[in-house]
């Protein structure tokens, strides 16, 4: 464990807690893409298959349980909660996320480190996580209004992956044989998807104006 990875995990944890807090307190999911949340639940479900078979550390197991619990409860809130579901913008959240899942499955079958079920599912979760934010970013472009909790949520999500890139660089230089192109490339693609959001987020914060994404 290094400071970059710990900071990344904490930022990631904080992003899901911010989102849960927003939905739970104001009983609204306005501006939140259910598709992105479903994709994240799928990412965690396919990545943490080893939660009961490979014990790595208490920290690792606790964080996996928190991420699984929070992502599925966010999906439950938006789908089932009688008040929250009314604020879900079904017409705007139209990104066909099935078009993301299939290519990730195919890519995971083609490019992986080991052709086993667990490894292919793990690789699938990496590819899917890289693109899972797309429905949310498309929704933001459409609705154009970004309440600051949603903006903070997306900013924290992007920051977590950026910190993980620093973690990989650190581990590359401190641990021999630590070379994982699949993890690094998908993590880099994911971070680049946030780049333009970061740009507008930073400028709106600097000029202290409401965050507007260009149409």
């Amino acid at each position: 464990m290094n400071i970059f990875r710990l900071a990344g995990d904490m930022t990631h944890l904080f992003s899901v807690l911010v989102l849960l807090l927003k939905i739970h307190t104001i009983k609204s999911c306005a501006g939140i893409s259910l598709k992105t949340q479903e994709l994240y639940a799928l990412v965690f479900a396919t990545r943490y298959l080893d939660i009961f078979t490979d014990y790595i550390s208490l920290y690792n197991t606790c964080m996996k349980l928190i991420f699984l619990g929070s992502s599925f409860s966010i999906v439950w809130y938006i789908r089932r909660h009688k008040i929250v579901r009314r604020s879900y913008d079904k017409e705007q959240d139209t990104f066909r996320h099935h078009f993301l899942i299939l290519p990730c499955i195919i890519l995971a079958l083609l490019i992986n480190e080991k052709f086993t079920v667990k490894e292919v599912m793990w690789t699938f979760s990496l590819y899917l996580e890289a693109v899972a934010i797309l429905p949310q970013l498309v929704l933001l472009q459409r609705t154009r209004n970004i309440d600051n909790l949603t903006g903070q949520y997306i900013f924290l999500l992007g920051a977590y992956r950026s910190l993980y890139i620093l973690n990989w660089i650190y581990r590359y230089f401190t641990e021999q044989h630590y070379v994982h192109w699949i993890t690094w490339i998908s993590g880099l693609v994911q971070t680049l998807l946030y780049a333009d959001f970061f740009y507008y987020y930073f400028h709106s914060w600097k000029n202290n104006e409401k965050l507007q994404l260009p149409a």
């Binding site: 490979d54 790595i56 964080m63 996996k64 993980y164 994982h180 993890t183």
Partner: peptide, 10 residues
Amino acid sequence: AQDQSTKDEL
């Protein structure tokens, strides 16, 4: 071997 992989990451 475990810590050489990224499986110890979340």
